[in-house]
Amino acid sequence: MSTLSTAVHIVAQEDVHKRDRAEVLLVCWERTGSDTFTVNALWPSQHSFYQTADGLYDPLLFVETVRQNVPLISHIGYDVPIDHHLIWQDFTCEVNPSALQIADAPAVIELRVSCSRVIRRGSRMAALTMDVVALRDGVLLGTARARFTSNPPALYRRLRGSYGDLDRALAAALPPAPPVDAELVARARESDVVLSASDFPHRWLLRSDTAHPILFDHPVDHAPGMLLLEAARQAAQALSSSTGLASVRLDAKFSRYVELDTPCWILAEAELPDLTGRPRAAITALQAGETAFSCSVACQAPALSRVA
C-alpha cells in the first residue's frame, strides 16, 4: 500500500481512465489517512453530455465525478496497476439540488473519500467500498457509496471467456437501434439518447453506441456502468412523462455484465414515493432472460429543484 503523505498531487489523466483530457473532472488529491483521501474536482459551466437544466448542473455529473474516483483511489491509494479491470457491484448516490446551481465560474467540488471493507488478493486490493461526501463552498452537494472489485488481466479473461477479447466484442456489437424522441427522455440531441422504442409500454431496448465520445470514451467489451445509469435516468424520465425532473437519488446493483452482442431490455415500473414524497421508479435491465442491472431512481420536480 502507498505510504501516508500529506502532499497535494495533480491527478494524472491515466488514473481516471479517460482518453479525452477535457473529460477529466478531478484536479488534485491528498492522502489524509491510511484509507481516507481528499480529492478536488472542477466542473465546467457547460458540459457536452451532462447538460444543464433549470440553471442546475446535471446530477449525473456528480455520478461521473464519483466514478472517476474509483480508478484514481485504486491506483494512487492501493497500488492497483493501470491494466486491472475495476467492476462495480453496487452504487448509491444522492445529490442536494440546492448546491447544483450554475455560476459564471466553474464549480470547485471537494470530495472526502473514505474506504472500508478492503479485500486483498495477496498484496493487491481485490475489492473495497468507497464512501464519498462532496462539498461545494462548504455546502453538502452529495453523498455516494460504491462497492467494486479489481481484477488482474488474466483473471478477467477467465471470467469473461470469449467476451474478454476486446476487438471481438466490439466487432460483434449490435448497431444501435433508432432512438426514442429526445424530448421524451429530457435530452437535447438524439445521439445522447440511450433508449430505443419497443412494442410494449415502459420497455425499451438499450442503445449501446460504441462510438459515443463520452459513454464509450475508451473501448470496453461490455456496456459501461455509466451507460446503464444513464439508461435508468432516461427510463425514469420517460415513465414520468413530466419534463425537467432531476434524478436526485440512485440505488443501483450491477449483477451481470451487459454484453454488446445481445439485446438488453430496459424496464421501468413506478414505485411508492420515498419518505420525503419524491416519486421513484424501479428500473431493470434484462438480457437473455436474466437481470443484469437494477436501479431505483428518485426524482425531484423542477419547481422544487430550482434555486432562488
Rank of each mutant, 00 (worst) to 15 (best):
R249G: 11
N151A: 11
S247C: 14
A211C: 10
A252H: 10
A169F: 07
L228P: 01
D192E: 05
R207A: 06
L174R: 13
R168V: 03
T210D: 14
L250W: 03
L184R: 06
P263R: 07
S191L: 05
L195H: 06
D274S: 01
D251I: 04
D217P: 12
V258M: 04
S196K: 05
P273A: 07
L275G: 07
N151Q: 13
A235G: 11
V220Y: 02
S247I: 07
R158F: 13
A173L: 05
E271A: 13
P152H: 07
V194I: 10
R203G: 04
H222Y: 03
A188P: 02
F148E: 01
L166M: 06
A223L: 11
S162P: 08
T210H: 15
R233F: 01
A246Q: 01
L206R: 14
E271F: 07
L267T: 04
R256A: 06
R187L: 06
P201V: 12
Q234F: 01
R203E: 10
L239T: 01
D217N: 15
V193K: 01
S198Y: 05
C264G: 07
S240P: 04
A252F: 06
L245D: 02
R256Q: 06
T243S: 15
P213H: 09
P153A: 13
D251Q: 08
E259R: 06
D261T: 02
R249F: 10
D251S: 08
E183K: 09
A188S: 09
L260W: 04
D181F: 01
V258E: 02
L267Q: 07
T243L: 15
L155E: 08
H212N: 14
F216E: 08
Y163S: 12
A268Q: 02
A270G: 05
R157H: 15
